[in-house]
Design a protein around this nucleic acid. Structure first.
Ligand SMILES: NC(=O)c1ccc[n+]([C@@H]2O[C@H](COP(=O)([O-])OP(=O)(O)OC[C@H]3O[C@@H](n4cnc5c(N)ncnc54)[C@H](O)[C@@H]3O)[C@@H](O)[C@H]2O)c1
Ligand SMILES: NC(=O)c1ccc[n+]([C@@H]2O[C@H](COP(=O)([O-])OP(=O)(O)OC[C@H]3O[C@@H](n4cnc5c(N)ncnc54)[C@H](O)[C@@H]3O)[C@@H](O)[C@H]2O)c1
Lengths: 205, 205
DNA sequence: CGCTAATTGTTAATGTTTGCACAATCGGGC
DNA sequence: GCCCGATTGTGCAAACATTAACAATTAGCG
């Protein structure tokens, strides 16, 4: 029986992956827990320990092959494939997300966009036609999409989340500044810049 | 000598604040650690313990006065004032941030926007004229701004961060998917949706 | 071929965070 | 005025996370 991996470790893996991807693009071959430590501000011992939960990826005296470790991490995080994403809310934030070019080489792509404002339904954002939220559940179900990004106002976020759950979505990245109520088997992550800003003002004099 | 507050506690306070602000808008007067616990998915004991590090804000048998606790938390986090923010990068993300209406009632406002693309410098986003990054250091210094949001491509993020540090910025909220190198007295927080998405795909089958 | 410097994976020690449980206290009802 | 159900703040124990330290191993070099 496999020991469960602590959430906090899973949360660090994407950071390792991102740093390795940069190094790989820089043409580098090898790295070490020490170098990753300096780049990421995470102790070298911790990085080694985290990785050791999944296997032995390095070589003593040498370090880690960047491309090898990269692939191992991609496999562990299941981003050695492209995941389709449904985006709800085609306002300022939704449009920025829809146009963002930085998803594909990290395992994701937006494949459908929904809004409930008749004046934007049917119009294009890049390659996408904005669909009505009336079609949301059926469209997501028939395309078998599991991940959604939510960029609607806070007041509407819960009702949209309910629809997403009904459509079979299992992971929601929520930009609305409100906590969502979802079943246990649905994962939610939050992006709220103000939370980060308030955390930093605590340390300002 | 005051005991230092653990970072992890400071990181939860903005969530309490956000939930309380919603309750207050709903016209509610009283809440309890239990109710907050249900809304936030943080245990009631933890909430009570976190708050107790700063004082005694509740009343046994009754709970917490929402508006009172709200004000206490605003004071603790120093958001009982409006902080000015400098925004760098007026692309898709920067424009969405510049137009966002959700900062002011939570303690922040964008007051200046910079870019280095001559074709956007001088144009308007809402009430702001986009300034050249050539003016960045002087403009930030003379307006005594301490917080910046960074929305430039990853390849340029470090050079801009260096300018921000030189200008006296002490808190940076970085949207570029790259770790920044800054002096110890400068706080950095990161927003990278892909990190959150990759964290969730780990749990998908 | 043996020495050196580098670096891993892992164990044990240390430190931090969370959860439990309960006395103390409050407000309301009767 | 007293009792009851609710709820806080907190001491202690348990769980969890991080760090330090080191034997084992490697590549490179003379
Ligand atoms: N713009 C930012 O920089 C920013 C920053 C932080 C947080 N956010 C949050 O992101 C969310 C979106 O922000 P925005 O600036 O894009 O707002 P916006 O008003 O520009 O866009 C919201 C969009 O959601 C659509 N919408 C509303 N109700 C809907 C529903 N029930 N179903 C489908 N679509 C619906 C609206 O028609 C609109 O197109 C908000 O919750 C906001 O708080 C935005
Ligand atoms: N758009 C999104 O949804 C999204 C999502 C996640 C992350 N991001 C990140 O946010 C950042 C901005 O993304 P975007 O989509 O707005 O990109 P963008 O290309 O639309 O905008 C970038 C802007 O930065 C400006 N710029 C470049 N170098 C600069 C410099 N040295 N000084 C000042 N300005 C400079 C450019 O002129 C441009 O206006 C990127 O790092 C991106 O990875 C964006």
């Amino acid at each position: 029986m496999e020991r469960a991996i602590p959430d906090i470790v899973v949360g660090r893996l994407p950071h390792y992956l991102r740093a390795l991807q940069h190094m790989s693009l820089e043409g580098r071959r090898l790295t070490s827990s020490q170098e990753l430590s300096e780049r990421l501000g995470i102790s070298a011992a911790q990085i080694r320990k985290d990785l050791s939960l999944f296997g032995e990826f390095g070589k003593q005296g040498t370090g880690y092959q960047i491309d090898y470790l990269l692939n191992q991490l991609r496999q562990i995080l299941k981003v050695n494939q492209i995941w389709d994403i449904a985006l709800v809310g085609a306002g300022d934030m939704g449009s920025a997300i829809a146009r963002y070019q930085g998803f594909t080489d990290r395992g994701f792509r937006v494949v459908m966009i929904f809004d409930n404002d008749p004046s934007v339904i049917g119009s294009q954002i890049g390659p996408f036609t904005i669909q009505s939220t009336d079609e949301l559940v059926v469209a997501i179900q028939s395309a078998d999409v599991r991940i959604a990004m939510l960029a609607v106002p806070a007041a509407n976020a819960q009702e949209v989340a309910d629809m997403l759950v009904q459509a079979g979505i299992k992971s929601i990245l929520n930009y609305a500044p409100i906590s969502l109520n979802v079943p246990d088997d649905v994962h939610v992550q939050y992006i709220d810049p103000v939370i980060h800003l308030q955390r930093m003002t605590y340390y300002l004099e």
